[in-house]
Design a protein around this nucleic acid. Structure first.
Lengths: 162, 162
DNA sequence: GTCATTTGTGTATAATTATGCTACGATGTA
DNA sequence: TACATCGTAGCATAATTATACACAAATGAC
């Protein structure tokens, strides 16, 4: 009997919506400390202590960085921006692509009709090294690689996903 | 008469080499606290207190972020990585491109022969929003934008550079 | 059902980081 | 020369952040 009254319940869902709220908050306004974030979250209906926010920040891989004037604020870290995308790409790729091949430094991905754009956009966001550029039609993605070896590597990586 | 013996001299140059040393250190090894960084710097011949390192970190816009296992370490922030690229792009673009136009959601940049690849690669690294994909030949870059409005915006931005 | 495990969080506090104040060398001005 | 100003950094400490410990709800094994 130590807890007050609130929910110490393992509400996974609540934690997730809080995480989303945190990301939205730090993207929209300049938040400099965890207490500040705590106050703003409270206004949005999430009542948690600084300790929890510290843990959230670790899980979300957020970072505190100075702006040009030397004022600190929280930001999405570069890793956390990319990791989710990798997962996103895997699931989109699995659901949409059915053939991968290459010739010289060109890689071609065949997708189910209408899916190519989505796969292509997601792949672009991953900024894989070796990719010079990508274009996609309705069902085909053309990827221009730096050289044939990069093309071979990319095909191998993509085939491992399946 | 409070200082020890060391140099409290305004050696701007020393501060700069220390900054470089810090960047190199955090890129090469996993450094989790400022005291740890202080110790490593000492081994490299830079004797400074945690306070100074805190200031260095603000100036360099470094960030502390958790890795997959939840262990914290310092990293180069995304801002400090991208600013130089923007400058690089500006100078390359100025030196290489001579015409920019668009139709629908496609932007075409005409460059002096052989320069397109360089401009394209540099532009890719900027990850401008609205860009779906890019391909470049010897003297032409084709940029596929999300929509016509993005294309218009991009052309405007590029023309402002000239 | 019981019991062990996992997950999420608060409390209290340890650990870490930021900063006000101060000092000192360098630079500029008269 | 003296004197003011600026930039860098130390020291001490305030401010902030991370975490050990404890507890409770959910989950799973039996």
């Amino acid at each position: 009997m130590k807890e007050k009254d609130a929910m110490t319940l393992k509400d996974n869902n609540l934690k997730n919506t809080r995480h989303n709220a945190i990301i939205q908050l730090i993207e929209e306004e300049s938040i400099g400390t965890q207490n500040e974030l705590s106050r703003r979250l409270e206004e949005e209906g999430f009542v948690v202590t600084q300790a929890t926010i510290s843990r959230d920040i670790r899980e979300l891989r957020l970072v505190k960085v100075a702006d040009a004037e030397g004022n600190y604020h929280y930001e999405i870290g570069k890793t956390s921006e990319k990791m989710p995308d990798t997962n996103k790409f895997h699931s989109i790729f699995l659901a949409s692509a059915h053939k991968v091949d290459y010739a010289n430094n060109l890689v071609v991905i065949k997708c189910y009709t209408g899916m190519a754009q989505a796969v292509c956009a997601t792949m672009d966001s991953l900024e894989w090294s070796g990719i010079v550029g990508t274009v996609s039609g309705d069902d085909t993605i053309l990827i221009v690689m730096r050289d044939e070896n990069s093309a071979k590597e990319l095909v191998k990586t993509l085939r491992e996903i399946r």
